[in-house]
Nucleic acid binder design. Sequence first.
RNA 1: CGGGGUGUAGCGUAGCCCGGUUAUCGCGCCUGCUUUGGGAGCAGGAUGUCGGGAGUUCGAAUCUCUCCACCCCGACCA
Length: 569
Amino acid sequence: MLQSQLFIPTLKEVSNEAQIPSHQLMLRAAMIRQLGAGIFSFLPLGYRVAKKVMNIIREEMDAIGGQEFHLPALNPIEIWEQTGRVEAMGDVMFHIKNRDGLVLAPTHEEIITVHARQHIKSYRDMPQIWYQIQTKFRNEPRPKSGVLRGRQFTMKDAYSLDNSWEGLDESYNKHEQAYRNIYTRCGLKFFVVGASSGAMGGSASQEFMVESPFGEDTCAICEDFGYGANIEVATSSLPSVSRLDENPNIEEFPTPGARTIDHLITKFSIPEDRCAKSVVCFVDGEPTLILMSGNDALNESKLQSALKATNIRHAEENELFDLTGAHAGSIGPINLKTPLKIYADKRLENANGLVSGANKDKFHFKNIDLSRDCTISGYFDLRTIKEGELCPTGCGKGLRVVNAIEVGHIFKLGTKYSQALGAMFLDETGTEHPIIMGSYGIGVERIMACFIEQSHDDKGIKFAPSIAPFDIHLLGLGLKKSEAVQNACEELDKKCKEAGFDVLFDDRDVSPGVKFNDADLLGMPVQVIVGDKNLAAGNVELKNRRTGERQILPIGEAIDSIKVMIKGF
RNA sequence: CGGGGUGUAGCGUAGCCCGGUUAUCGCGCCUGCUUUGGGAGCAGGAUGUCGGGAGUUCGAAUCUCUCCACCCCGACCA
């Protein structure tokens, strides 16, 4: 296609509102323009990339037997009320103001389940994999980082319907493999982590992650990728606090100035893991004391799922005093002013010889035996793992803690939605069961942005052929001046097309520098440069945008070399 | 929702504290000539509700109030 006739308004500079490379480059390379907070228009070049990503997704979904739907974004709120998600979503869901009873869909579990209820009646009707690529609306409180977190975005969402739990496992595994194929084909470096199902419900879930300092998720990954987990669920191999043979009675002792665990460790020579740190939280409104070993950080996600709670908040300073009789630093499980339910981290299970606050300012107890001196309602894994701790698989390697961008998430939903909406089937014996479901999502814009994050330099984007807007950027230098260059370009353009390549022919009457810089910015995998100097000797130049490698070769050999170069990506 | 910041031509910006000529500069755009292998040169030209509204003042981009939009940090994140 002729660049002179296309709308590709590249920018030399962008406002400092765009702070991360992918956002800056998508603006500069004329892929997107911002219309409002978290709202973006795709320009032709950007949409070409989006379409290539969507086609890869489509091919891989079709390959596992997926059937493409197109569901409405406008949904009757009534359906969402039946699963309790109007409340669960809260402000995230957009509500239509001038037509009662309609919302904009943030995802489509409910709608899929409704259609399944209408027609999936027998175990013989399953398995099914239904998917769509569609616009989602989520009223994010704070959109950020360009297209990485928007209020309107494109998502491939898929849903599996099965008649058995084994069937669900199979559908889930198919999706996992399809997702791996999709990211690999898009040229993304990614990893997979175990994740929390959160408010989606269900038994298991995994997230597909791209490491990035701009990621909003934190993951623990083993150096050799044998283990990966979202920090919300990550565990590590760490010894429990051992039980001491000597077990004297508890004893109060003064600890002036000791407000932190570190003070107890340094000023009173107490081993870190013998310190039982107390945290007071309101769990669904009920004040609860949580005991952690040493400086272990309480992981609220773990607490939430362990106690099956929906809302957790830390107690405020004045509430702490009212409940326990002491201020932060002197709180503990014994001698509480108000009896509180007490949970403890698994590392403290059955531990003794512990030091904890006396619920009296500037005093602690020592020799605490949790099984003798306290009533612990339950021991759970509640700690947040730290960088460098050993991999829980026992491989002996350390864990890295990294920021990451979530580009996909797969869930074993189970029967939460089918039960709520009454999507039932009859098994071989005529017994009725709820359909067993899975749900699988991929963010299309996130794939694009993540690719650019991983593949750019100070000049611009370095696209892989699989998702590049064009395969080849043909640069004609001094076209007006030289008929030979013009003819050579037209000839090459034609030959490249015949060879099956998409070609962007820069036929604009602008200086060579402009063309080179635009070409590097836009980032097509191969640049073919035709200028009169090389052409005088019958040569053209190829440039590999990724490696920067250049070849000057006879025009007749260009096509074959381009093929080799593109294959090498 | 809390905290911080920004809003000036198509884009990027200076000026604002300390009110006072015709609102600065670069890019882009239009006309002409020259130029053409890494964002060309010269000459001429067009383009502004200084985010909106209200106020203070002889006079407001500049001070005050208010509303709006956007960005960043936090909270939140199916």
